[in-house]
Design a protein around this nucleic acid. Structure first.
Length: 262
DNA sequence: ATGGTTGGTTACCAA
């Protein structure tokens, strides 16, 4: 099974890029974030031939998540966090027994101070809330995959400059500690780093504000794929698909995918 | 220290 995650930054604008990605990479499942569209206007017509099973949850202008799958769903769900119906989570149970959770964690604004920056406060609260949920819902026998734009680059080799980003939202100590607690809540294994060691620099996002993203390479690893420990040994590969960052009118995020022997 | 780009919507906000 090949599963991909991609912050698409408007699914209507980039449905054609998804088609190209599917042609080149052939994933069984794609989890999208920042679809930025209400469910009625989701571009099903461009994707239904590629993925028969689609679970979408979007809103106007902001956020929005989707799970597109070739493997049928047994059930689908979604949850609200921090009392907001802002379309940052969606989940699906597949007929092969795998449960998928797709998250779009709040970016958190510019100032890394929860007292003065409501967006950063929201990000921290969001992390606390899903960690509490994770702790309550830890079942060692379940086969689960958590993916998404978590908007945190935890390791020093997940950013282009650990020193220069220490006070930049996405790489602050408080966020990294909370992400670690979330990871520990269900003993999640970072599937991508299981394959690609922490000694290697690895990014999934590069700002649009760079003339040549490859040349400057000031990236961050914001997009993640985690699996429960019972799936760890079944991981056979992990890839950040850099090519897509070079396509015409790209998302600022590259897709990430893993292969899992299931 | 500052400004740089993009998308969706609406003359700005979020990333």
């Amino acid at each position: 099974m090949r599963i991909a995650t991609w912050n698409i930054n408007s699914v209507r604008l980039r449905a054609g890029l998804i088609q190209r990605f599917v042609k080149e990479v052939n994933p069984d499942i794609i989890c999208l974030q920042e679809t930025k569209v209400v469910d009625e206007l989701f571009p099903h017509n461009m994707l239904e031939n590629l993925f028969e099973h689609r679970h979408v949850r979007g809103m106007k202008s902001y956020n929005g998540v989707a799970i597109l799958s070739r493997i049928p769903f047994v059930s689908t769900d979604s949850k609200n966090w921090c009392g907001l119906n802002d379309c940052r989570h969606i989940s699906a149970k597949l007929i092969n027994g795998i449960e998928i959770h797709n998250f779009y964690i709040p970016a958190g604004g510019d100032e890394p101070n929860p007292k003065t920056n409501k967006k950063f406060e929201h990000k921290l609260n969001f992390l606390d809330e899903i960690t509490e949920w994770g702790t309550k819902n830890s079942h060692p026998d379940k086969l689960k995959i958590l993916v998404g734009d978590l908007n945190i680059a935890p390791h020093e080799n997940d950013v282009w400059s650990h020193k220069q980003l220490q006070k930049v939202v996405s790489h602050t100590i408080i966020e990294i500690e909370k992400l670690k607690k979330l990871q520990d809540s269900q003993n999640w294994v970072d599937a991508v780093r299981y394959v690609i060691p922490y000694t290697e620099k690895l990014y999934t996002w590069w700002s649009y504000r760079s003339k040549d993203w490859r040349l400057s390479n000031r990236g961050r690893r914001l997009d993640h794929i985690w699996v429960t420990p019972n799936l760890k040994e079944k991981i056979t590969s992990a890839t950040v698909f850099h090519d897509a960052r070079d396509w015409i009118k790209p998302s600022d995020h590259a897709p990430v995918f893993i292969d899992i022997n299931i």
